[in-house]
């Protein structure tokens, strides 16, 4: 994204998928970074399984609450056909992140003539790629189910969005903690990291080795150093449980130990959660 001018993120999906909450979290992240923010969506009838969208705009000064077609930096689509519906909003050189899990509406299953097909558009991914070079499709629901809650799909997608945004990981995790129900903070953060890491992994695989354009974002991948103050650790195991990357494990003396420092994504959860201040991430 450009450092100057208004930045546009369009989040779209189907009623019930959590589009509005995702955009609320993004709005908080932008505001906490000191930007002016406006976001716009429509409630009411549209939410009953219909099309849901949320425009998020931020920058030094924001005027219109909605995004003009052809000017969105990112389109985050919770559903493939919705990505197609809204793709005209993406600017040349913009990014489309799309959840590959289809939501077929009853309206697509009504033609009862012999051998009539389900009316769902075919070839969506190719069509999107035909318009915008940077299309990232992945199954967010699968990641959410792995975490144990399909409803976390929206946070997984938000994690994927974070991989192309300028904000720091802490900004996101803090905004999630401030926006979701206290009971679900940890699961949401885990889902967020799953989405974020899946994108970083995909990016790393696809980057040409001689050139790395995503340097700012990729800094998060540089392995940080995790230091455990052995004599302070009482072996409660919290850090081991919360680490989304399984960097830590309990050793034979029942103390936490770093086993996979290179996988650390600096989410800070181990440091934050340690009741004995025994963990430091540098």
């Amino acid at each position: 994204m450009e450092p100057n001018g208004t930045q546009n993120v369009l989040i779209v999906g189907v009623g019930g998928q959590g589009v509005i909450l995702a955009s609320d979290i993004l709005g908080v992240v932008c505001m906490n970074r000191g930007y002016q923010v406006k976001k716009s969506e429509v409630h009411g009838m549209a939410k009953r399984g219909g099309v849901v969208y949320s425009h998020v705009r931020y920058g030094a000064q924001v005027l219109s609450p909605t995004i003009e077609p052809g000017t969105s930096d990112v389109l985050l689509a919770f559903e493939p056909a919705e990505a197609l519906r809204w793709s005209k909003y993406v600017k040349p050189g913009g990014t489309i992140i799309v959840n590959s899990r289809k939501r077929i509406p009853p309206a697509a299953c009504q033609d009862r003539r012999m051998d009539a097909p389900t009316r769902y558009p075919q070839g969506i991914e190719q069509a999107l790629r035909g318009q915008v070079g940077d299309v990232r499709q992945f199954d967010a629901e699968e990641l959410a189910v792995e975490i144990g809650d399909h409803r976390m799909c929206n946070t997984v997608l938000l994690g994927a969005l974070s991989s192309v945004c300028e904000f720091e990981l802490q900004d996101w995790l803090g905004a999630i903690a401030a926006s979701v129900k206290p009971k679900t903070v940890e699961r949401n953060q885990k889902a967020f990291l799953a989405g974020r890491n899946a994108q970083f992994a995909a990016m790393r695989d696809s980057l040409p080795s001689e050139k790395c354009e995503m340097s700012r974002s990729v800094t998060c991948l540089d392995a940080p150093e995790i230091a455990i103050h052995d004599s302070w650790c009482k072996g409660c195991e919290i850090c081991v449980v919360v680490c989304p990357q399984a960097c830590l494990k309990m050793n034979e003396r029942n103390r936490a130990e770093v086993v996979k420092a290179e996988a650390c994504i600096r989410c800070m959860l181990c440091e934050w959660m340690c009741p004995d201040l025994a963990v430091r991430v540098q």
């Binding site: 009953r48 219909g50 197609l84 509406p105 309206a107 558009p121 069509a127 035909g130 318009q131």
Partner: peptide, 19 residues
Amino acid sequence: TAGAAAAVKENLFRPPALC
């Protein structure tokens, strides 16, 4: 003319529905 919407003939009709 080479827009994504043009490549796929029709968009999905997704009216709101009873839950």
